[in-house]
């Protein structure tokens, strides 16, 4: 492909401007879903086109890009996206969280704390937290407008009634800035806490559903729960990363079918590599 055949960052400037406007609106109304005209991309819907469009709209030649998929820099999807962005921008890439300025991610937030210079772009499959209770898009929007969120709590209540506890795993609904209930994309509960009062900017893009939303820095983000069933993290006690020895991080579980043993290693591969390298010194 000849880079000259395409605009910088693939999208035309008009598209980028529209998406940026949607992003700005999203930032001014934390947690509120803003519709946008989702463009055609060489990647199919369901493969991260929402997050990708945000990245392409905000990336500049001096940015440093990191892309992860469930914490991993090396997965096929992460590599594909990195290659694509690189070819139409020439922007520097990294696996080092601290060095990056834009981090596009599917379903995880990096272990290392993000700062003022970071923008984390999350790929979102289903932006509507009320979808499973209210199928009508129009009615759901009216509910958001009226702060009518009994349906969101009902979802959790029903789980408690059926299973004795909240079973919502990834994508736990949160209340943003005390106003909008948001679906934070399927990040584990562990990562949900990282959204609250963060130093960085979080942007969420759903390409198939054509919605963008945002959590600006230092915004309150509180998981929904009940007085007698408070929000609980996943249980990571007694787990140790077999590569770098880290504890109290989010783990991938690896099951060895030959020996029958379970092993744990850091989900965030970049963090793991850094940690292991630091320990060897």
């Amino acid at each position: 492909m000849n880079e000259n055949d395409y605009n910088f960052a693939f999208l035309d400037e008009g598209s980028k401007r529209e998406i940026r406007r949607a992003i700005i609106k999203a930032i001014t109304i934390p947690g509120c879903q803003i519709p946008f005209g989702s463009r055609e991309l060489p990647i199919g819907r369901g493969w991260g086109t929402g997050g990708l469009q945000i990245t392409l709209s905000i990336i500049g030649p001096d940015d440093i890009l990191k892309v992860i998929d469930q914490g991993n820099d090396d997965s096929v999807n992460a590599i594909s996206i990195k290659k694509f962005v690189s070819r139409c921008t020439g922007v520097e890439q990294t696996t080092d969280t601290q060095k990056a300025t834009i981090i596009q991610s599917r379903h995880r937030i990096p272990e290392e704390k993000l700062g003022e210079n970071h923008v984390l772009v999350l790929q979102v499959p289903n932006p509507e937290p009320l979808r499973s209770v209210e199928r009508s898009v129009l009615k759901a929007r009216q509910m958001h407008g009226d702060t009518e969120y009994s349906a969101a709590w009902l979802l959790l209540y029903e789980q408690i009634v059926r299973y004795g506890k909240i079973t919502m795993g990834a994508g736990y609904p949160v209340l943003v800035d005390g106003r909008y209930v948001m679906a934070p994309s399927p990040i584990p509960r562990y990562d949900t806490l990282g959204l609250d009062d963060a130093d960085c900017l979080y942007l969420f893009g759903a390409g198939r559903e054509k919605m963008i939303y945002a959590v600006p820095p230092h915004t309150s983000v509180v998981p929904l729960d009940f007085d007698d069933f408070p929000f609980e993290l996943e249980n990571v006690e007694e787990r140790v990363c077999r590569i770098c020895g880290a504890e109290n991080v989010y783990f991938d579980e690896i099951f060895d079918s030959e020996t029958g043993e379970r092993h744990y290693q850091c989900s965030d591969s970049g963090f793991c590599a850094k940690n292991a390298a630091a320990k060897q010194i």
């Binding site: 009518e148 009994s150 009902l154 209540y157 029903e158 009634v161 069933f229």
Partner: peptide
């Protein structure tokens, strides 16, 4: 009614809408 939610859940939704947040009490 929400036909796929428990009958208790259906009634609870009205309580939740009025601001109740204690599961045991609602049950």
């Amino acid at each position: 009614l929400l036909m796929n939610y428990s009958s208790g859940g259906n009634v609870a939704q009205k309580l939740i809408a009025a601001g109740h947040r204690n599961v045991a009490a609602m049950q």
